[in-house]
């Protein structure tokens, strides 16, 4: 198998603080990884460190993307290997959905900015897959929170990279759209061998989606392994400092985690 993503002793320091410390894991082509952990555990910092997006601060350790040292790649090369859907913070970019997706073709286009037929097809495909065709000419800031999350995902899809980094793609989505999103990611993962790294707060999805889970706490990796193991051994309790009950799904019989009330 081809190793798509490998982190060796990855650390990130800002103003003398270690926001991420000694995180190691590796993913093969077509793997799925769910990054879980309490607020402020360093989940987003991990994604940004893997993509070397931090403007200030210092990295430690080593990251390999598709077999190449991330530190030695140009931004354009990196953007061709890995796409990114950041968290939705602050003001929405001042573009329509379609324009926003076209911008994601940046690593593939010449300096003139002219889009080729392949570029336009990639944008159309991303719109179709995320069901945003009807909203393609709406401004991002006029969309609802959920629709905007989908637009960010679509933009990452339009980037057409083998690795995808998604920061809480299901935030603000209603149950139906969340299920649709999961189905879409699974389909992309299975049919096209896309390697997907997702930051999520949905423990039960991480539990039974059939991928790996990386649990972070205070910048350190507490656990890396198959998601199914999350339900046992008090792991969730250790990660979140909170008690969980393990239930059984009445139909499928699969374990479910329910956070106990205080």
């Amino acid at each position: 198998m081809i190793v798509m993503l490998k982190a060796e002793h990855l650390s990130f320091f800002l103003n003398g603080w270690a926001l991420l410390e000694d995180v190691s894991f590796s993913l093969e082509r077509g793997d799925c990884l769910f990054v879980i952990g309490p607020n402020g555990a360093g989940k987003t910092t991990l994604l940004r460190s893997l993509l070397r997006l931090h403007e200030t601060g210092r990295y430690g350790g080593r990251v390999e993307l598709a077999g190449r040292d991330a530190a030695a790649l140009t931004r354009r090369e990196l953007a061709k290997i890995a796409s990114y859907a950041p968290q939705d913070g602050g003001a929405a970019p001042p573009f329509t959905v379609e324009e926003f997706l076209q911008l994601s073709r940046y690593p593939h286009i010449p300096p003139s900015g002219r889009l080729s037929g392949a570029d336009r097809e990639a944008v159309r495909r991303a719109l179709r897959l995320t069901g945003l065709e009807g909203q393609s000419s709406a401004l991002l800031r006029h969309l609802s929170g959920g629709e905007r999350r989908k637009a960010y995902l679509a933009a990452a899809l339009a980037q057409e990279a083998e690795l995808m980094f998604l920061d809480e793609p299901a935030a603000f989505l209603d149950p139906r759209h969340e299920a649709e999103l999961h189905r879409l990611l699974k389909q992309l993962n299975r049919e096209q061998g896309l390697t997907v790294v997702t930051v999520t707060h949905n423990l039960n999805h991480a539990l039974d989606a059939g991928g790996n889970v990386l649990a972070l706490k205070k910048g350190r990796a507490l656990f890396f392994g198959p998601g199914g193991e999350l339900a046992y051994g008090g792991l969730a309790r250790e990660v979140f400092d909170h008690a969980f009950s393990v239930l059984r799904h009445p139909v499928s019989g699969r374990p479910l985690l329910a956070a106990d009330s205080l």
Partner: peptide, 21 residues
């Protein structure tokens, strides 16, 4: 011009799309 489009959408986003910000 294309890099400026991305910069106006946000620096992190621009960097993740391949702009040497």
């Amino acid at each position: 011009a294309p890099a400026l489009d991305l910069l106006s959408a946000g620096e992190e986003l621009a960097a993740s799309r391949g702009v040497e910000v």
